[in-house]
Design a protein around this nucleic acid. Structure first.
Lengths: 213, 213
DNA sequence: TAATGTGAACAAATTCACAGCC
DNA sequence: GGCTGTGAATTTGTTCACATTA
């Protein structure tokens, strides 16, 4: 039934949604495609194309109703509910993520945390008790974990991914600088900050090479 | 002179490079496009196209010389040197990034850190002394900062970006969940972990809608 | 009239397929 | 024989331009 929405469109929908929620809080009722475009770094045609993918709800000559559109995008992205998230690897980054309020604000609640270090197991960090990694299966099941975040050292990340998908986790966000291939149709996204820095390094280098235009 | 390399190609080059460095350490001398492809999640044709962008160095019938190719990609991406990085916002995430060894391993050394909280200023964290944000200009200049990472709350991120580009920083990696537009040709990349989670939410939701194929 | 919605034109990225070379 | 290098074909994503409508 529903159309397949491309990855890049989904990213933009997330951006629009963030803006729309802000506008809604400020009591704005209507917004035009060009206003949305400005702040999301897209063009107005792009915004209209994106929104028309799911039989759109704009009013010609006026714009889009903030409230209705917010609801529609939340529906499409599956964000009209709270997702239960687990975090594997309670090191420096993992701990920081546990305390990252923005996640909960936007509908992702960390309900479990795992590590292998004996001194971390049993500790409660930002309201979540750290379980031993060996108990992934039972804890994931018991707490109804749907999405997992991997924040372990790179070498262990792939095996952790296998454990997670076997435990029934539906999707994985990988913070470790290693590629993890999709296991059993469990989608994986990797966030690699050094990769992003390398992209910036290329831009700076190529610009310098071509004479700073 | 040099060709413009697209963003997606640059990302893949980073992935190839990471693999190549691993192979080099293990003493492997030759690698084929399909081996590289497997581990980078691409196709062999893709790899060959990417590598042929800069008059390539493969040997037909054999593969690519690990050593030479590593050097070439490092050259292209500007990674045959160490970049001086500053970190703005020494909160939970910022602190975690200060201690992130992988950055230094891959050629990005954090040489300065900034915050506005009086209790943080002057403290030394993972070998870096936290300076007051008001001194951005002088410290950036003095320490030769080339790239900055923003890890402040979203509301302050845009103004911090302006301060940084005025101080002469060449590129910005933004960790705050806000869009920052390019200022004065200073490129900005945003890493938004909740955006990635939202992408996963869409995949899980759309799959469920279409009956778990 | 001021904005949407959308086919048609365009541009970019990926894949195919095969000639050329080691 | 096996693997690279690359034009050509294809697919995917973006922009244009304008008819349409509240």
């Amino acid at each position: 039934m529903s159309v397949r929405i491309s990855d890049s469109t989904v990213r933009r929908l997330s951006l629009y949604l963030r803006m729309l929620r802000g506008l809604r809080v400020r009591g704005v009722e209507l917004v035009s495609s060009s206003e949305l475009a400005d702040r999301a770094g897209a063009t107005s045609a792009q915004v209209r194309k994106d929104l028309s993918l799911f039989g759109s709800c704009g009013k010609r000559g006026r714009g889009y109703e903030v409230d209705a559109l917010t609801g529609t995008i939340e529906e499409i992205l599956g964000l009209s509910r709270v997702w239960r998230v687990a975090l594997v690897g309670v090191g420096k980054i993992g701990t920081a993520l546990l305390g990252y309020e923005d996640m909960l604000d936007r509908g992702f609640r960390v309900v479990a945390a795992f590590d292998i270090a004996p001194d971390k197991i049993g500790r409660e960090i930002f309201g979540v008790t750290v379980s031993p990694l060996s108990e992934v299966e039972s804890v994931v099941c018991e707490k109804g974990v749907e999405i997992a975040i991997i924040a372990t050292p790179p070498a262990t990340a792939p095996e952790v991914a296998v454990m997670l998908s076997e435990a029934g986790v539906g999707a994985i966000l990988n913070f470790a600088p290693t590629r993890i291939s999709e296991i059993d149709y469990v989608p994986v996204r990797t966030v690699d900050l050094v990769l992003e820095l390398e992209g910036l390094s290329y831009l700076l280098t190529s610009r310098r090479r071509n004479g700073d235009d």
